[in-house]
Design a protein around this nucleic acid. Structure first.
Length: 571
RNA sequence: UGCCGGGUCGUCUAAUGGCAGGACAACGCCCUUUGGAGGCGUCUGCAGAGGUUCGAAUCCUCUCCCGGCAGCCA
């Protein structure tokens, strides 16, 4: 066992050690928890998980895995007025999708309501808790302020018998919401407001999604959390920074009941991402106000949204690894997330050709009815993915952006007189431009060089540009949804006077293109299938809306675009 | 300004008294049948001032700056 720890110490030392790992390593050395590492992921089922939760999930499960420990999934369901089974289900789905397995350790704080109640009774019996009759407003006054101490409640010195009786009757449903609360008797003058006789139980005559109407008193977070950790044998209770001031209370509660196992709370800085918002309240508002199509809108930073967008679990886990874990506040550049998904999809995804904004091209010297099957490589990063045939014929579509009538200096795609390579097919030269009565280009006429089949030329002449295409008569039509960042400013939370975060929504965060042409291979694309549309980006068949005869693709992320930069710099 | 926490390249994050390193971003160059990928390179940083020390991002002192906390939410 000790050898294992030594090895683990060395193995971890070679990768990167964050401060939490350092604590665990130290605990293992001193045998603080008998060599055990047991973490938990404890969401409240009151909303959908977002990328910030993914950081926490990866942290908790990753740490346990690294040290041969276990991780529990525990729903922190102590406030039934906000919670719902819908959220329980979505959370389970999201954690599973990320690739983590809590095995049979699926727990609910509500599993412990009886035991928690007994701990509360014990506290009362020990003179460490009392029933208080102050109203919410009075309680606020008595609490004091950040700079002034609080005052003791006039009910603070009720007898144990009286407290026991009142608490029992609270539980029995004799009193209305808000009339009584159970408070820990600590110190009203504490500089830490959480220690000024915090409420540990309140009356809530609300049906609970699991215990229904069995209870009408519910423990507060602070009371339930530490005891739940203790009951489950959690060693390292990892949470975000805003709970730092709660740690003294966490520890105080566990000390009062003299438990044999005392978990350690460790706080880390939550994830912030630029160009988005992360608060559940704001996310909910976007959903309710119809700014997005739902919690799983591909523009949302929710796990469900990111999944629908076409991100992979590997990309998210790599991202979580890369951003690290520390205590300082941070804002991660969304470019890092995008990098992570490109990196993953680049290795895995099949390349196909798709034309999003079609421009008709007629190869004038190509036989009218000839169809040739061109060989195309499925993934240059992975030869094992093989090749496929792509039909080529006289009439094609190319991207409107791949033709420019009067090209700028560095533009080396198609233009009058210029020769380019049609990927995997032939060199073609533009001979004519057809326009409608308004002067819009509606068709390009080209000639091809029959000797360049496959894309190479026997005379060794070079062409600068290679563009993608689809054969008009073989093309499959599809809708393509181009997604971009939801907000047009880095920090939508920092609002100017008189504005809300919604004033910074990016009007172009979704562009739907209805007449896109895909190479015929894509006709069998299933929901969720991921592809690289060559030269454009990574796309995913929408897991909900895409159907066999009505294909819908979401753009996950664009390819890194050197041309966009050149264009920008020319201006 | 009560308590708690935090300040290292533009953004994240390492270095735990011994060469400030990595990733992303940016910018070059090379390569390329994706202006993709890849390769090579460049740039930029210890909040400030003192002190301890042979040696300080790291330890000490002071200053400055940022964040969290006054729900019967979590």
């Amino acid at each position: 066992m000790n050898n294992d720890i030594e090895e683990k110490t060395e193995a971890s030392a070679s990768s990167s050690i964050n401060f939490i790992k350092a604590i665990i390593l130290d605990d293992l050395k001193t045998n603080k928890f008998n060599g055990i590492v047991h973490t938990r992921f404890p969401p409240e089922p009151n909303g959908y998980l977002h990328i910030g939760h993914a950081k926490s999930i990866c942290l908790n499960f990753g740490l346990a895995k690294e040290f041969n420990g276990q991780t529990n999934l525990r729903f922190d369901d102590t406030n039934p007025s906000k919670e719902d089974v819908e959220y329980v289900e979505s959370i389970k789905e999201d954690v599973k999708w990320l690739g983590f397995d809590w095995e049979d350790r699926e727990f609910f704080a509500s599993d412990y309501f009886e035991q928690l109640y007994q701990y509360a009774v014990q506290l009362i019996n020990d003179g460490k808790a009392y029933v208080c009759s102050l109203s919410a407003d009075e309680m606020k006054t008595y609490r004091g302020t950040l700079t002034e101490p609080g005052k003791e409640s006039p009910y603070r010195n009720r007898t144990i018998a009286e407290n026991l009786d009142l608490f029992e009757r609270m539980k029995a449903g004799e009193f209305a919401d808000g009339t009584y609360v159970l408070r820990a008797k600590i110190d009203m003058t504490s500089p830490n407001l959480n220690m000024r006789d915090p409420i540990i139980y309140r009356i809530l005559k609300v049906s609970h999604h699991r215990t229904a109407d069995k209870w009408c008193i519910y423990p507060m977070y602070d009371f339930a959390h530490g005891f739940s950790d203790m009951i489950e044998g959690i060693t390292h209770s990892i949470c975000t920074l805003e709970f730092e001031n709660h740690r003294p209370l966490y520890d105080w509660l566990l000390e009062q009941v003299n438990v044999e196992h005392h978990p350690q709370q460790i706080e880390f800085a939550r994830l912030n991402l630029n160009y988005t918002v992360m608060s559940k309240r704001k996310l909910l508002q976007l959903v309710q106000d119809g700014n997005v199509s739902g919690w799983d809108d591909p523009r949302m930073p929710t796990i469900a949204g990111i999944r629908r967008r076409g991100y992979t679990p590997d990309a998210i886990r790599n991202f979580a690894e890369r951003i690290g874990v520390a205590k300082r506040d941070n804002v991660i550049d969304i470019a890092l997330l995008e990098h992570s998904v490109r990196e993953d999809l680049n290795k895995k995804s099949m390349r196909v050709m798709a034309v999003l904004k079609p421009l008709k091209v007629v190869i004038e010297n190509y036989p009218d009815d000839l169809v040739e099957e061109m060989d195309a490589i499925n993934n240059p990063e992975d030869p094992e993915m093989g090749t496929r045939k792509v039909p080529f014929s006289k009439v094609l579509y190319i991207e409107q952006d791949d033709f420019m009538e009067t090209p700028s200096k560095k533009y080396f795609r198609l233009s009058p007189g210029a020769e380019v390579r049609l990927r995997y097919a032939y060199y073609v030269k533009c001979t004519d431009v057809v326009k409608d009565e308004n002067g819009n280009i509606i068709e390009i006429k080209c000639t091809y060089d029959p000797l360049t089949k496959g894309g190479g030329s026997p005379d060794g002449r070079k062409v600068k540009g290679t563009i993608h295409w689809v054969s008009a008569k073989h093309a499959v039509k599809a809708q393509v949804r181009l997604y971009d960042r939801l907000f047009s400013v880095e920090n939508p939370d920092a609002t100017e006077e008189g504005k809300t975060f919604k004033d910074y929504l990016n009007p172009d965060s979704l562009i739907k293109l209805e007449n896109c042409y895909l190479e015929p291979y894509l006709i069998n694309a299933e929901k969720g299938d991921k592809f690289q549309f060559e030269r454009l980006g990574y796309f995913c068949a929408d897991p909900i809306d895409s159907e066999k005869n009505n294909l819908v693709f979401n753009r996950t992320v664009t390819l890194k675009d050197a041309w966009a930069r050149i264009e920008k710099n020319q201006k």
